[in-house]
Design a protein around this nucleic acid. Structure first.
Length: 548
RNA sequence: GCGCCGGUAGCUCAGCUGGAUAGAGCAACAGCCUUCUAAGCUGUGGGUCAUAGGUUCGAAUCCUAUUCGGCGUACCA
């Protein structure tokens, strides 16, 4: 906000010096407050080109700078040629009044302008329960989708799944074996069987309703398909239930199989052949990746006639383009990394803009407790599922822990801290700020005091107040940066700073027992903080409690 | 071998497009509740930013090499 103003006056000054080709000027807050509120290194950047001492350039710029003395208190040169700017406290009050007028929608933006965005996440096949890695994937994807929504995009949340193929057959066989084991404990488990306890649960459920139907089937019995279907339905119900606990609802469940039945895969295959991007060898169809700038060619149709996963992946991404999405976001775990360049290059060579796709790859999650890795749930004695974690620490803590770090770093999920219902747990620090703001209002209410929009915003000049205002002003920009980078932890870090500034303000400035005009102004500040915390937590998918 | 991610305080991690004295939380130590929520605030200690070169007025940030850890490298998904 204040940067727009500065950009204007600096461009005008440069223009007077005969420089018009500067597009953007960087302004940033110096670490040390003595250097002012905001600084630019433009003079140093120009020094190279102009072959002049940066301090001299800085002086020339300042001499030509035409600014409002009510807004800017002082402008000076420091160090190698920084231009430091100090705003008057009143300027921040004016900015505060501006943002205050946006009220409860503060932070919502229209930049997205209804552009269609597809965010695909979770996308776990219905062969089992969600584990911790899926949890990180789910929360990262859902939060990025929220960010896009707040930026004014038209967001579709999508789940891509495959209910056919080897893994599903495997699921069916595993259920079949467990079912038969009920009456015949020696019945063998298939090779590569799924060993989770849930398989037994599914088998038990089937046994209860039909105790003989699936006994000793022939290999080609059509009933095997029913077993697979039963497994799929059971798993999906569990998965959706787990996601619901995380407050995640997706709009589209896209079935990979439809790419085959609707001929999309064949279409792609045909186009690849026409464009000379594929060839046949040893009875298989190969993708000519070596001609698309990659190391080696890969099989897309096996000699058995089945497609490998690359082919439907390519078809699926093309479908996303055809469905009219301008921004496509995929969220994957680090183990999925291999296929991405292949899909991207092929899509590009088929005439689609791969720059529209952003692939978010998050690193793995390790669950620890007191420095030791936790693999099994103490409660169930089985391997730790996302459900176990949710039951143990609650959805707010889970969501917060999964987005408080950059996605590119390995995430250590410390159960001991997560379980702690105290100040050690960072999620409470944010929620507490919100609850505190709310409690001030309930106290005010008791005293018959309410928010007065006729307040005098120029009274907010205490250091703690100005500091809080400075933080609050940044909210929309931080949402925007967070969305552009598809990194929710940037917003998380910001909210910590807002909370910190608010706690300091609360500590230093009395609110309800101050003089009436000061009280009114401060209450407005409390209200804006409450809104920023509430909206910020909403984007993160975390509850903002009114009491703690 | 090759590709991707990471190596920053005792621990877990921030550090945006290179910028002025490298930050936070936890842990350790010392303070602040007769006053709007102490799940808070204030202060102290703690760092060869993995290593070595390079680019630059200026590097935790960019480049190269080395090293350690994770993941991947199928006619599996």
């Amino acid at each position: 906000m204040e940067k727009d103003y500065l950009l204007g006056i600096f461009k005008a000054a440069l223009s007077k010096l005969g420089i018009d080709n500067i597009e953007d000027i960087t302004f940033e807050s110096p670490n040390n407050p003595e250097f002012g509120d905001i600084a630019t290194n433009i003079a140093m950047q120009m020094a190279r080109e102009l072959k002049k001492n940066p301090r001299i350039i800085a002086q020339e710029i300042i001499d030509n700078l035409d600014y409002n003395k009510d807004v800017i208190e002082r402008v000076d040169i420091a160090g190698a040629g920084f231009i430091n700017i100090k705003f008057s406290p009143v300027f921040y009050d004016v900015l505060f009044e501006k943002i205050r007028q946006s009220g409860i929608d503060y932070g919502k933006q229209k930049i997205g302008n209804g552009i269609k965005v597809n965010v695909e996440y979770v996308s776990a096949n219905p062969t089992g329960l969600l584990h911790l890695g899926h949890g990180r994937n789910a929360v990262v994807g859902d939060t990025v989708a929220n960010l896009f929504e707040w930026m004014g995009y038209d967001v579709t949340r999508e789940y891509y799944f495959n209910n056919a193929g080897n893994q599903m057959n495997n699921l069916g066989k595993s259920i079949y074996a467990r079912y038969n084991q009920i009456d015949n404990p020696d019945f063998p488990l298939p090779e590569n069987a799924y060993h989770g306890e849930y398989i037994t649960n599914i088998a038990n459920d089937l046994y209860k309703s039909s105790p003989t139907k699936y006994k000793d089937l022939e290999d080609d019995s059509p009933l095997h398909a029913e077993l697979i279907k039963a497994g799929e339905v059971w798993c999906f119900e569990k998965i959706k239930n787990t996601l619901k606990k995380l407050k995640i609802t997706q709009d589209v469940f896209y079935n990979e199989d439809s790419l085959y039945t609707e001929g999309k895969v064949d279409e792609v295959l045909k186009t690849l052949k026409e464009k000379g991007l594929s060839y046949e060898k040893d009875g298989a169809v190969w993708l000519k990746l070596s001609e698309m700038g990659l190391d080696q060619d890969r099989v897309i149709v096996k000699s058995t006639g089945e497609a490998t996963y690359r082919l439907p992946d390519i078809a699926y991404h093309i479908e996303k383009f055809k469905r009219g999405f301008d921004i496509i976001v995929d969220v994957f775990g680090a183990d999925h990394i291999a296929t991405i360049p292949d899909v991207m290059q092929t899509v590009e060579h088929l005439g689609y803009d791969k720059e529209k796709i952003s692939v978010l790859i998050h690193q793995f999650v390790t669950l620890t407790e007191n420095g030791k890795q936790v693999k099994m749930s103490k409660r169930t004695g089985k391997s730790y599922t996302l459900d176990d974690l949710l039951d143990e620490v609650g959805e707010d803590v889970v969501r917060f822990f999964f987005i408080m770090r950059s996605i590119s770093t390995h995430l250590e999920f410390d159960l001991a801290i997560a379980k702690e219902q105290s100040d050690k747990n960072p999620v409470f620090y944010l929620q507490y700020a919100h609850a505190r703001a709310c409690s001030i209002f309930s106290k005010a209410n008791e005293q018959g005091v309410s928010l007065n929009n006729d307040y005098n915003y120029k009274l907010l000049t205490d250091e703690a107040e100005v500091n809080l205002i400075k933080q609050l002003i940044k909210f929309p920009e931080l949402i925007s940066i967070s969305c552009d980078k598809r990194e929710a932890h940037i917003l998380t870090e910001y909210l910590k700073e807002v909370a910190s500034a608010f706690h300091k303000f609360f500590h230093n400035c009395r609110i309800l027992d101050s003089e009436q005009d000061i009280r009114d102004a401060r209450l407005q500040l409390v209200e804006m903080t409450r809104i920023v915390m509430k909206n910020g937590l909403t984007i993160l998918g975390i509850n903002a409690p009114e009491k703690m």
